[in-house]
Computed example of a mutant assay.
Amino acid sequence: MSICVKCGGRKLLCGLRRCPIEDRVAAFKIALRRSWGLEVFGSTPPAAVVGEAGWPAVSVYFGEPPDVFGEEARFYDDPTSMWGLPLEEIARRRSYMAFGVKRAKSPWELGELPYVYISAKPVDVEMRFAKAPLPQIRFDLFEKPMGPRAPLERARVVENPSVPPPLDRLIWDDVSASEAAVELYARGVDIYTIQRAFSLGLLGARHRRRLVPSRWGITAVDVAVGNWLAGRVRTLPEVGGILYGYGEYLDNRYLVAVVPGPLRFVYLERWQSGGEVAEILVKEDVRGARSAMDGGFEAARVALLEKLASMGRRGSVAVVRWIGEGYYVSVGNWQIRETVRRIQLRPMDEEYRRYVERVGRDPLDLLPRGRALTDFLS
C-alpha cells in the first residue's frame, strides 16, 4: 500500500494501465451519494456472499444496486450477463452495490432473505442499515470487489421471489446437499442459483442446515456436479483424435487439449508477475482422485465435462490457464467456468492454424518452454 500513497493514483507506479483504487472510489462515491443515508431501495441482481471468518457463525452480505430495478440489476452480479465486460467495469458495478450484513449460523435466522437471493428474477428490496455504509478497499485474488457495507437493521421485500419449482421442493426435503445439487442441475436449474442455495444453507438434511462460506459452496457444487457428469462421460466412446481449444478473457488465457484415452484431467495454472512465473499443478486420475483441491480446476473441469457430454465423447484432458498482470482483481471462478464453456474444441488442422493467425498469438506459447500440452498426460 506504500506505493499507492506515493503514487496517489496519478503516476501508475504499480505498472497497471489504470488505478484500481481510483476506479473503486469513484463507484463508492456514486453509490453513497444515491443511497440516501441509511436506506437503499433497488432490485437484487441477486448478490449474496457468505463469509468465512468465525464459521459456523458467519457474516452474510446481501447486496443490491441503489435505484436499479428489474432485469437491469442482473448486470451487477450475474455471471452469464457480465461475461465479456472489461475488468474495470465489473469492479465498478460490484463496487456500486450496497451490502447489508447480518451474522448467523443457519438460514432460518435470516427470515425470507435467502429466498430472495435464489429467485429466478430480480426482486425489489428496501434495506435499512444500522449505520451509514462504509466502503472497504481490498485487492487480492481471493475476495471479489464489494461496495459499501453496513449492518442490516431490516429489509422489506416488496414482491414475492420466483424460486425454481425443483429448488422450492428440495428446500423442504431431507436429502444431502450434494445429492440435491446434482438433482437440481439435472433438472436444468442454473448452476449459479444452485451455488447460492448451497451457500445460504437451503439444501441438505434439515436438522443440520448451516450457512456455507461462498468459496466453499461454489467449489462443493462444482465437485458434485462434475462428479455426476464424469460418471456419464466415462462410458462414452473416445474422441477420434487430438482436439485443441483456446479462449481468453480478463488477461486469463486457456489452452485445452483432449486426447483419446480414459477420462482424466491435468490442470496447470501459470501466474505471470514481472519476469517471474509461478505454477500450480492439479492432476485427477481415472478414478477421479485429485492431487489437490483447487476451485479454479473444479470450475474448468465442470465446464469441460459439459462439453464432452454434449459431444458424446470422452478423453484425457489437459488444461493450461495463464494469468497475466492485467488480472489484478479477482471477479470469481465464474470467469473460468464461463470462458471454458465458450471454448470450441477442434483438430490441430489448417482451420486451427487460421484461427491462431486471427487471434494474433499461438496458444501453445502458454506452455512451459520445451513442453507439449499432451506431455502432461503421459
Rank of each mutant, 00 (worst) to 15 (best):
C7H: 13
G9R: 08
R18K: 11
I21V: 13
A27C: 11
I30C: 00
I30R: 15
I30H: 12
L32E: 06
S35Q: 11
G37M: 07
G37A: 09
F41M: 05
S43W: 10
T44H: 09
A47D: 04
V50F: 12
G51T: 01
V60D: 05
Y61T: 02
D67A: 11
D67P: 05
V68A: 10
V68F: 15
A73P: 10
R74C: 05
D77E: 13
T80Y: 14
T80L: 06
G84S: 05
R94A: 02
M97Y: 09
M97N: 11
M97H: 13
V101H: 14
K102P: 03
L110N: 12
L113M: 13
P114H: 06
Y115I: 01
S119V: 05
A120D: 07
D140I: 04
P148N: 09
V157K: 14
E159W: 11
P161E: 01
S162C: 03
S162K: 11
V163M: 06
P165T: 01
L167Y: 14
L170G: 01
I171E: 00
W172T: 04
W172D: 03
W172S: 06
D174H: 13
V175A: 04
S176Y: 10
L184P: 05
G188T: 03
D190F: 15
R196I: 03
H207D: 08
L211W: 09
R215K: 09
I218A: 08
T219Q: 15
W228H: 14
A230W: 12
R232A: 06
T235N: 12
E238I: 04
E238Q: 15
L243S: 05
G245L: 05
L250R: 02
N252D: 02
Y254G: 00
L255H: 08
V256T: 04
V258Y: 14
L263I: 05
R270Q: 03
Q272A: 07
G275M: 10
E276F: 15
V277Q: 11
V277S: 09
V277A: 07
A278Y: 14
E279P: 12
A289W: 15
A292F: 14
F297R: 07
A299M: 09
A303W: 13
L304Y: 09
L305R: 08
K307Q: 11
R314L: 01
V320W: 01
V320D: 00
G324M: 00
V329L: 14
W334G: 01
R337K: 15
T339M: 08
I343A: 00
I343C: 07
Q344R: 15
E350C: 12
R353P: 00
R354P: 04
R354W: 10
R358G: 00
R361L: 00
R371Q: 05
R371N: 02
L373G: 00
L373P: 02
